[in-house]
Design a protein around this nucleic acid. Structure first.
Length: 909
RNA sequence: GGGCGGUUAGCUCAGUUGGUUAGAGCGCAUGCUUGACAUGCAUGAGGUCAGAGGUUCAAGUCCUCUACCGCCCA
């Protein structure tokens, strides 16, 4: 594409598939994505713009949510780049520890393998092979969306730099006493065979069963069970009977006072346990007596600690009963439950069973019921870190958008509990802790491991590394600085930390944003970003979350192939507000595609309408102000308004507003009016060439500005058109690095004059339509207008004729002259302008319809006038409202009065 | 149990610090092969802004309560 082929060189319809690929290649070749690339035009005096991409999970293809977020991230990056800031959009991929294992487990299952059959080393090999395949696919998808990432700085959460950062971060936390190893009750997923953080457990309301079970008290004399003396307990989990080490009642419960201190025999495991009194027991629940299983229940754990009860773990890692469960050993936990219930039944000790509404914790990956279990795990002490994160948001060092999320942020960080970072998985960062046979712990950031046991000096050969890996969010939490080279003191780290914006979906605000804030502030002594922009979720047209299992996932590539990347981006940004979910629909996509096509065709017209006197390679400069007509001045003023509105929307991160402004300006003003007004003038050979040139340059200037404003949202089509658009001196070769436009001054007079004349065109069209006159007929129209509009009218009359399909459009002296002409005309009132349309053949029917139209208009206007008068009659309004508001109300009332008078005159005349 | 959000045209959604006549897209109706575009053009119909109360000269917008829908935390 070259300038010589401008206009005619553009195809009749915009075909994104032919345009997008080559343009992306040109951007890459020009090296404009990197803030320090050869093609960068960044001003070193301006602050850099840094957006580290939330790394998508490397496990699969991208969905519409990714496309939406890439679009928003890219929009911000491109805007900043055009403002002359060094803009870093750093891409990445996440190894997604547990999520990846779930995916790979499914794949190898289809191959007849299991994690166990492969073993750790071969499993990890298989994983690297798998992500080698998905990785390139995912990166290609991002390019198709148009993301202007600095691919040279691409990072992976499992690459060497990230590993170094993870080891260093953990070693420092350990030294500072912020990481510790401890045995306690943790969340265990038997399906994933790993512990989970509290966030990964999903509280699920379910209807279970509450069973009442009878335990036999021991005869105090013989120590044998007394078949007559029993205590009944209520439980939803009979299988945990095997781990019971106590029965508890409320200390003030008279039903049981006499039993406290007695012992009962736990059936099947034949364990004798005490009846204890503890205020934690809810007397109203079940029988008022509860079994205590300290190793399998959070509340029981605390009770067990208070009363020094033994902790008996009766399950294994796969959720089967362990050897501690006697002859139930080996049974899956729910099978064991059924067997135990049956055995209780036959023993006569199952007293009742009732449906019970309860909340069950399930694994957010596998949906297995999470088992509380006693395990030794690594924890991060979060309290001090969370306080620092709260300070950052409270002082507005970091702002969360939309602001309402700051409330949940406050709440969660205030009540935060320590973070279990150990996972019993294979795919992830190995915990850099080594244990010696004496139980000493050595933590080191050294990739080679410790030189000796820190405590007793035993050689490395006698030390064993912790088999566990880190929660995937631990490495993610370091992302804002690990990506920049930390812990090494790199130039990137100095220049690009802290970042500017963190864009992510609101559903991972705790998983991720909170951890980045905590760890960023801790290690870098400054919050990792200025703004947290939380996107909503993209749902299907019915409001459902998109998921592979539901089969309602829309592949962004399909949408791109169908309608183009720009259309997809626009449709995902248009009408969306931060933090609000949005439904994706084919109609929105189609509308966006139509918009791209509209812009394309407008450009095709403008570029093809170059006056013959203007050379094809002419350098663009501001049009000659002395030769601008009212339409040109009007357009320039409207463009200025668009720049102001776009700047405002961007400053407020209101990207839906940005697209709304641009759509309305480009389609509703530029295409619908400015181009149509210009057509006549451009074709008018009687005008001096310089006038026609000034008109054309005004159109080109406006197009150029719109392209710049729209580029961050629709980068491909704008770049393609700009390639054909005359450049100004100093413009770069590519729009992506062109300057963001500055708003030219507004022209209030031109806006008022042309605005009134366009209103006349609308009123004439309306009159013709309402009277059902022949749409093809050129109708003679007389116009009476205030003298202030005279010059603009005279200049624009030929264009107005064309737009209203009215010819001749004659200016008459005043309204009386209007009515003194031939009878049978249709009266039209448009603001301060009055007109009389003369139908070719005066029909009684048309006249009647026209009368009805005028009467409707009069009635509506009178209603408005009544309202305006009532308002002004209110003394309190006049006294208390701001003077400007009152003034506007007065002007409004005066205008309505005039309008009513004109309509009345028209009806009478 | 605690908290947050939503309820605006047939559908999907915007709506700035309260201030003219509440907007858009799609859909609908009536027309139009007007030389950039039928992926288009013109005109039109369609809303007591969930309900009730309050603050204010003025409320879709602020406050209180209610109903329904959704989400988060426990």
């Amino acid at each position: 594409m070259t300038q010589e082929h401008a206009g005619p060189g553009l195809a009749k319809a915009y075909r994104p598939a032919e345009v997008e690929g080559p343009i992306y290649e040109r951007w890459l070749a020009a090296d404009v994505f990197a803030p320090d690339g050869a093609g960068s035009r960044a001003d070193p005096a301006k602050p850099p713009f840094v957006l580290i991409q939330p790394p998508p999970n490397v496990t699969g293809s991208l969905h519409l949510g990714h496309a939406q977020r890439s679009a928003v991230e890219d929009l911000m990056t491109r805007h900043a780049r055009m403002q002359g800031r060094a803009a870093l959009f750093l891409p990445g991929l996440d190894h997604a520890s547990i999520a990846a294992q779930v995916v790979l487990d499914r794949i190898i299952a289809a191959e007849g393998e299991t994690r166990a059959s492969l073993g750790r080393d071969r499993y990890l090999e298989r994983m690297w092979r798998f992500i080698g395949e998905t990785r390139n696919l995912m990166l290609a998808q991002q390019r198709r969306v148009g993301a202007s990432c600095d691919w040279g700085r691409l990072r992976f959460t499992m690459d060497e730099d990230s590993s170094r950062a993870v080891r260093e971060a953990f070693a420092r936390l350990y030294r500072e006493g912020l990481a510790y190893r401890y045995e306690t009750l943790i969340n265990w997923c038997p399906g994933c065979r790993t512990s989970l953080s509290d966030l990964e457990v999903v509280a699920t309301p379910e209807t279970g069963t509450l069973w009442t079970i009878r335990y036999h008290l021991l005869d105090e004399a013989t120590g044998d069970p007394d078949h007559a003396a029993t205590i009944s307990v209520a439980t939803t989990r009979p299988e945990t009977i095997l781990g019971d080490t106590g029965v508890a009642v409320h200390p003030d419960d008279p039903r049981y006072t006499a039993l406290v201190g007695r012992r009962v025999r736990i059936p099947f495991v034949e364990r004798d346990v005490p009846i204890i009194a503890d205020a934690v027991v809810d007397r109203a629940f079940g029988t008022g007596a509860v079994k205590i299983t300290p190793a399998h229940d959070t509340d029981d754990y605390a009770t067990g600690e208070r009363h020094h009860l033994p902790f008996v773990d009766v399950m294994d890692d796969g959720g089967h009963i362990s050897a501690a469960g006697g002859h139930y050993a080996g049974l899956e936990r729910y099978a064991a439950r059924q067997r135990i219930l049956a055995d209780l039944q036959s023993a006569g000790d199952l007293m009742a069973s009732t449906p019970h509404e309860m909340v069950i914790g399930r694994c957010h990956r596998s949906h297995d019921v999470v088992e509380p279990r006693l395990k030794t795990q690594w924890f991060v002490r979060t309290k001090p870190l969370a306080e620092a994160a709260l300070r950052a948001t409270r002082t507005r060092r970091t702002v969360i958008l939309p602001e309402r999320f700051e409330k949940v942020w406050e709440h969660w960080l205030t009540d935060i509990r320590d973070w279990n970072v150990s996972r019993q998985l294979w795919w992830g960062h190995r915990i850099p802790a080594w244990y010696c046979p004496d139980g000493h712990v050595t933590v080191t950031a050294d990739a080679a491991g410790p030189a000796a046991c820190e405590a007793c000096g035993r050689p490395p050969a006698e030390l064993t590394q912790d088999p566990d890996i880190f929660d995937t969010w631990f490495s993610s939490g370091l992302w804002p600085f690990s990506t920049l080279g930390w812990p090494r003191a790199t130039a990137d780290l100095a220049r690009f930390y802290p970042g500017t914006v963190m864009e992510t979906a609101y559903d991972i605000i705790f998983f991720w944003v909170a951890r980045m804030m905590m760890l960023g502030i801790h290690f870098m002594e400054d919050a990792p970003f200025e703004v947290v922009y939380l996107s909503g979720l993209v749902r299907d047209p019915y409001g459902q979350k998109m998921s592979k299992t539901k089969g309602n996932v829309v592949d962004p590539l399909e949408a791109i192939e169908e309608s183009g990347a720009d259309a997809l981006r626009f449709s995902l940004i248009h009408g969306a507000a931060p933090g609000n979910d949005q439904k994706f629909s084919a109609e929105k996509l189609e509308n966006a595609r139509n918009f791209a096509n509209k812009l394309w065709n407008a450009a095709r017209f403008v570029l093809g309408a170059r006056p013959s006197t203007t050379p094809p390679d002419a350098v663009r400069s501001a049009p000659d102000a002395a030769r601008l007509g009212p339409a040109e001045r009007w357009l320039r003023s409207r463009v200025a308004a668009a720049v102001v509105a776009a700047d405002r929307a961007l400053a407020e991160y209101s990207f839906g507003e940005l697209t709304r402004v641009l759509y309305e300006s480009i389609w509703g003003e530029y295409c619908d009016w400015a181009l149509e007004l210009a057509k006549v003038r451009l074709a008018d050979e009687t005008l001096p060439a310089a006038d026609r040139e000034a008109t054309w340059w005004t159109l080109v200037e406006a197009l150029d500005t719109y392209l710049r404003l729209l580029h961050p949202v629709m980068p491909f089509v704008t770049e393609a058109i700009w390639d054909e658009t005359p450049r100004a001196a100093g413009d770069p070769a590519l729009l992506i690095v062109a300057d963001w436009p500055a708003a030219p001054p507004a022209d209030a007079a031109a806006e008022a004059e042309v605005g009134a004349l366009l209103e006349l065109v609308r009123a004439l069209r309306n009159a013709r339509s309402e009277a059902r006159l022949d749409p093809a007929a050129w109708l003679a129209v007389d116009v009476a207008l205030p003298s202030s509009l005279g010059p603009a009218f005279d200049t624009l009359a030929p264009a107005l004729e064309r737009l209203a399909h009215a010819r001749p459009l004659r200016r008459v002296a005043d309204a009386d002259a209007l009515r003194s002409g031939a009878p049978g005309g249709l009266a039209v009132v448009a603001g301060p302008i009055e007109a009389m349309v003369h139908p070719l053949a005066a029909g009684a029917e048309a006249a009647a319809r026209d009368r009805a139209r005028l009467e409707r208009e009069l009635a509506g206007t009178e209603t408005q006038l009544d309202g305006a008068r009532a308002r002004l009659a209110d003394e309190r309004f006049v006294a208390q409202a701001p003077a400007a508001v009152v003034e506007r109300a007065r002007a409004r009332a005066a205008e309505l009065e005039e309008r009513v008078a004109r309509l009345r005159a028209s009806l009478e005349g």
